[in-house]
């Protein structure tokens, strides 16, 4: 099973986390076009290689953490950016 390196708890089994997908910043709803909102809601990149994702450590520290995961090898590492 893949391990997710939680910056608070250390590496933990992926089943302790909920996957919140690749980083998808929320557009300002006051100015967002329908197209931008659609992209935010439904379109996700699925690159072959590293992608920055948000995981919620639901069964641990309950923090949203940012992780770079290689979609080919499932190798994971901390990400400096994003929510901690």
């Amino acid at each position: 099973m893949m391990q997710i390196p939680c910056p608070w708890c250390g590496p933990r089994n992926a089943t302790e986390f909920r996957h919140h997908g690749p980083h998808a910043p929320r557009p300002d709803p006051a100015t967002a076009s329908a197209e931008e909102w659609r992209r935010y809601l439904y379109l996700r990149p699925n690159p072959y290689g590293p992608v920055e994702e948000t995981w919620y450590h639901a069964a641990g520290c309950r923090r949203f953490v940012s992780v770079i995961r290689d979609t080919f090898t499932n190798a994971t590492q901390w990400s400096e950016g994003g929510p901690r």
Binding site: R26, Y56, A58
Partner: peptide
Amino acid sequence: WEWVEEWLQTMHP
């Protein structure tokens, strides 16, 4: 609960 935490932690810390 998770939805609340998501808003508080990721969008409005």
